[in-house]
């Protein structure tokens, strides 16, 4: 993450870069709709098997389900993560700050597979356990970064804002959140990008998504299937990640003239 942000600041800000997410999205769309045309290419991996293109479920349907799971999880995590991060840094919720920040760092030690496995006995097979696992796992980076971002806002600036007569609500919305936005955004980016990859694990508990071809490939020893699943997940991750990068850059661009 440090490296990402550093690279982002170093790179020059030219208009064509806004097109990068569009390029990835285009490639993703091409891959989803035109996978069958690549049969010759995938034949190279598995010359001997009968079918080299995963065809049990349509790729666009798998992509849609994958996106649905990630989006639901992201929506819940962003809302909950931001709300709890803000709540425990307010005066009334400050009692909960040590516990929440310790949990956010301790929770990182829980492997997502284990969380997923533990969710199944409670929630049964299917899409629900993977959404819950993604929610729990994606919550931590957002909470941690929200806390860091809000706590890093200079005390002097907050005091100045209060001295000017701003209410705590105004300070939160007009001072703290805008200043913490780049850090919070970085947390959301990490959370969503990790979850796109982790969602593939859902295929092991009966949730149908882009992990399906991978599992099928591993079970049948068909590398072509694995490559197809990995390719689509990779392209999806790159599209979303580069979109977030543009947003982050926008946030930084907003801030830099003030800093200089």
């Amino acid at each position: 993450m440090t490296v990402n942000t550093r690279a982002a600041t170093q790179a020059s800000r030219s208009p064509w870069q806004i097109g990068i997410p569009l390029v990835w999205l285009l490639l993703l769309w091409l891959a989803v709709t035109g996978m069958a045309q690549l049969e010759g290419f995938f034949r190279l991996f598995e010359p001997d098997v009968r079918s080299v293109i995963y065809s049990r479920v349509d790729f666009s349907l798998l992509l849609g389900r994958h996106l649905f799971v990630v989006a639901i999880a992201a929506l819940v995590t962003i809302t909950l993560g931001l709300a709890s991060g803000i709540a425990v840094t307010r005066k009334k919720g400050r009692d909960f700050l040590p516990l929440v920040s310790q949990l956010a760092s301790m929770g990182q030690t829980f492997p997502p597979v284990a969380v997923l496995a533990l969710a199944v006995p409670v929630l049964g097979f299917g899409t629900l356990p993977i959404i819950v696992a993604l929610m729990l796992y994606g919550l931590l980076p957002i909470v941690r970064n929200t806390l860091t971002g809000l706590q890093e806002v200079d005390v002097g600036i907050k005091e100045a804002a209060r001295a000017m007569g701003m209410t705590s609500g105004q300070i939160l919305r007009q001072v703290e959140l805008p200043m913490a936005a780049p850090v919070i955004m970085a947390g959301i980016r990490t959370s969503v990008t990790i979850n796109i990859a982790t969602a593939a694990l859902g295929a092991t508990v009966g949730a149908s998504n882009l992990g399906d071809p991978i599992i099928a490939g591993i079970v049948n020893g068909n590398t072509a299937y694995v490559v197809q699943g990995a390719l689509l997940i990779g392209l999806l991750a790159l599209s979303v990640d580069s979109t977030f990068e543009q947003v982050q850059r926008r946030l930084k661009a907003d801030e830099s003239p003030r800093n200089k």
């Binding site: 990402n4 690279a7 991996f45 991978i214 591993i218 590398t223 694995v226 990995a230 990779g234 991750a237």
Partner: peptide, 25 residues
């Protein structure tokens, strides 16, 4: 540095499940 970190970052974006699968062949 830049190239090395770019490659390592890329490796991390491949889903673990897929990386295991890709190494089979």
């Amino acid at each position: 540095q830049k190239a090395a970190f770019a490659i390592l970052n890329f490796l991390q974006t491949i889903p673990s499940l897929a990386l295991f699968g890709l190494l089979l062949a």
